[in-house]
Design a protein around this nucleic acid. Structure first.
Length: 755
DNA sequence: GGGGGCTATGGGGGG
DNA sequence: CATAGCCCCC
């Protein structure tokens, strides 16, 4: 354990051992950034810092999870107790207990962007504005930008730069919409994604009851990964956490300006430059040795990125040998592109003995995934699609979630509007818009306005029935488990019987989705295993809703681990594969047609391409089609300009790969999309549920033999943590990965006395 | 007020 | 191509 520092190169070691004061690590792709971050945290803990005094903000929950696992391997499971997660999930967790200090309920709802857009549409309608000028996407992005720059509606209305711009864009009333939007969200007890940051800022800035000092003292060491993708507001929050009297400024940022790919949501590499000004004593470490890819790939990446004007000088290099040249596939159309990629995968598996899991297909837009799925399915190659329309965005799932949200927070206007007449109960558009108007006029939520609404006797009783139903749900949720509440709601709301009317395949799959959702609730409720990177929240409906609202990735599928990965280039950030296909290398696709006319956006597309090719360890294949179906039409695009930016010496000769055809007629092995919760798993019961009697958690002691409902017989190897947060490491001999960490607070373990 | 069918419109990346 | 919104009829 003491020699873990020997596993680092000189610069990495310095970055890991410089614990005090501001530190900046500029890390090229594949330069061991995750290793540095996790070793640094391990080193902090070894030097006597308590795990919970360390706050690590990562870009995805997956990154947090992997990091914690790595630290655990280095120094033991107490590492699991560092605070690590995304900005949004960590702040939501804090706001869950502090929101009342800034005028929001602690049980606040989280509006996703669809909710936000629906609210904007509503406001535009209320104000009798032209919906063509007031496009919800445009309005939302303006509001989002304002929040991300800490511009309140009031300041917005008074700042000519903003209002003039809006007049020019034919949206002079934008400041009014912004104000109303904020009011409606607050009345609904709801926060949108930007609010999670903005209100966290306000919480710290307003400092009610000294709350700021509480978190400043709690987080003695601050680490931020992917700092190039933070926005102004995120940096401002971090500064509030770290800047105070006698602060040691233990603030470590890790990033790479060349991999900044989120400026569309306000990220700015200015933060990296500003950091050096704000913390003049900063110690900078530049990691340039690439341990991931072979020479041709590394050099191609360097050549591409030098076409960008603005960047911190840096050149990645490798000692891992020349490796293979970059392959290129030119296809006549999108179908042929997909077929040849699938052919190539089969070939690669035979010749290089790659497993499916070593291979990823990266595309610019999620819409491109479908055709690749088709061919992978035909070729019997298991695959998994990451991102895209996730499980939680499907209509039937959102409907049930809306009922759950309403149960927790009846003021949630967007949830209410979604289900007040679904399933159909005779409360039509006219009635709803009258109630909405009443709510607006009196500045209350729709829920609060309903009792004051005067309607015909018939409508009145329909409304009463609806209100009564929701109240019942809330009562149920207070005295029963989340799973049983959700099950009750699915049945009593009428959603299930409505779906049962539809006997088509789609209809049946919708019911399956609802069942999956329910087993997801059950899983949440029963899960007593401490998973790295997972938020520990209360095991109630509100906790469940928070968990899924901010989901970025899904648990590993434990049944089938060998699959080809399909994802957008954005989603691939931070990942690596032996073999990478970057597909759709065409003008107007990659780079996107939205970006080709703006030099800054074009540079971002180039960084995106840089990220894409540096994911590859051994084999990089770039593909393009001369024609493809886009938006229902056949389009002809030129090959991407980015292809010409790589020197010819790095390319293989274009090679023809013969089609292998369909390899078998057996049922294709297809894994669910990421985001698809598996239907209820019928795992082999290791324990007879009838005779299972869990013991009181405080009786569990080290050395005992116990029974776990899901994992079977186990031996308690150690118990760590303070009174209320004890975590036991238990060895379960009957399962794969036998060593599990169980949170005793939630555990259902039966003590065995016969051993 | 509900529901079916048609037309018009937009179409990126993600927490 | 997918979906939202509209019109028309019940």
């Amino acid at each position: 354990m003491s020699n873990y520092l020997d596993e680092l190169n000189d610069i990495q070691r310095q970055a890991v051992t410089t614990l005090e004061g501001p530190v900046m690590v500029i890390a090229g792709p594949g330069s061991g950034k995750t290793r540095v971050l996790s070793y640094r945290i391990a080193h902090l803990i070894q030097s006597g810092v308590a795990p919970w005094q360390i706050l690590t903000l990562t870009f995805t929950n997956k990154a947090a999870r992997e990091m914690k696992e790595r630290i655990s391997t280095l120094i033991g499971s107490h590492a699991m107790r560092v605070w690590a997660g995304t900005f949004h999930s960590i702040f939501a967790r804090i706001l869950r207990s502090e929101a009342d200090k800034i005028g929001y309920p602690n049980d606040f709802s989280i509006y996703d962007s669809t909710d936000s857009k629906n609210l904007i549409k509503q406001i535009v309608k209320d104000l009798n504005l032209d919906k063509n000028n007031y496009n919800p996407n445009a309005v939302l992005s303006r509001i989002s930008q304002s929040k991300s720059n800490l511009v309140t509606p009031k300041v917005y209305a008074q700042t000519e730069a903003y209002t003039d711009y809006d007049k020019m864009s034919k949206r002079p009333m934008l400041h009014v919409i912004y104000q109303r939007y904020v009011n409606r969200c607050q009345k609904a007890g709801a926060m949108d994604f930007d609010d999670l940051l903005m209100l966290m800022y306000r919480l710290l800035a307003e400092n009610k009851d000294g709350v700021r000092a509480k978190y400043q003292q709690a987080f003695r060491y601050l680490l931020v990964d992917e700092f190039q993708d933070t926005n102004f507001l995120q940096y401002e929050i971090l500064k509030l956490l770290v800047n105070y009297e006698d602060s040691a400024n233990n603030f470590c940022i890790v990033g790479d300006d060349a991999q900044s790919i989120y400026s569309f949501r306000g990220a700015t590499i200015k933060n990296i430059l500003q950091f050096q000004k704000d913390y003049p004593t900063v110690q900078v470490f530049k990691l340039e040795q690439n341990y991931r890819s072979t020479h041709h790939i590394v050099e191609a990446a360097n050549e591409v990125i030098t076409k960008n004007k603005r960047q911190i000088p840096k050149k990645i290099w490798t000692e891992s040998g020349d490796g293979e040249r970059i392959r290129i596939i030119r296809a006549l159309n999108d179908t042929e592109e997909a077929r040849r990629v699938a052919d190539s995968i089969v070939e690669m598996k035979n010749r290089s003995h790659f497993a499916n899991i070593d291979i990823a297909i990266l595309y610019r837009t999620n819409a491109q995934s479908r055709i690749f799925e088709e061919f992978l399915r035909r070729y019997n190659l298991p695959y998994r699609v990451f991102g895209g329309l996730s499980f939680y965005q499907r209509k039937e799932v959102k409907d049930v979630l809306a009922y759950l949200r309403l149960t927790v927070n009846p003021n949630d206007d967007e949830a209410l509007k979604r289900v007040i007449n679904y399933p159909k109960r005779g409360i039509g558009a006219t009635t709803i818009s009258k109630i909405v108007a009443l709510a607006n006029d009196n500045d209350v939520s729709i829920w609060d306005a309903i009792p004051y609404f005067k309607a015909t006797k018939r409508t009145q009783s329909l409304l009463d029935n609806f209100v009564e139903k929701i109240k019942q749900f809330t009562i149920k949720s207070k005295k029963d488990t989340p799973y049983r509440t959700a099950e009750y709601i699915v049945k009593q709301s009428g959603v299930l019987s409505d779906l049962r009317k539809d006997n088509t395949i789609e209809g049946l799959s919708r019911i399956e989705n609802i069942e999956s959702l329910l087993s997801g609730v059950q899983l949440f409720e029963e899960n007593d295993e401490l998973m790295a990177g997972e938020e520990i929240v209360e095991k109630n409906l509100a906790g469940y809703l928070q968990n899924i609202a901010l989901i970025t990735d899904q648990d590993e599928d434990k049944e089938e681990k060998d699959y080809v990965s399909l994802m957008s280039v954005h989603a691939a950030k931070g990942l690596e594969y032996k073999s990478i296909f970057v597909v759709g290398m065409e003008e107007n696709l990659f780079p996107s047609y939205m970006s080709v006319s703006d030099p800054d956006q074009l540079e971002e597309e180039r960084r995106l391409f840089y990220v894409a090719i540096t994911r590859a360890e051994q084999i990089l294949t770039l593909t393009y089609a001369t024609s493809r179906y886009q938006y229902g039409q056949m389009r002809f695009n030129d090959p991407s300009r980015f292809l010409e930016e790589i020197g010819v010496q790095h390319f293989d000769k274009p090679m023809e790969i013969r089609s292998k055809g369909i390899s078998s007629f057996s049922e294709p092995k297809v894994l669910g999309k990421l985001g698809t919760l598996k239907p209820k798993k019928e795992y082999i019961a290791l324990v007879d549920p009838a005779s299972f009697k869990p013991s009181a958690p405080h009786l569990i002691k080290q050395g005992m033999y116990i029974l776990h409902k899901k994992f079977g017989k186990g031996h308690v190897e150690s118990i760590e943590g303070s009174d209320h947060n004890k975590v036991a490491t238990i060895h379960f001999a009957q399962i794969d990965n036998p060593s599990r960490k169980i949170m005793l607070k939630f555990a259902k373990l039966q003590i065995l006395d016969d051993e």
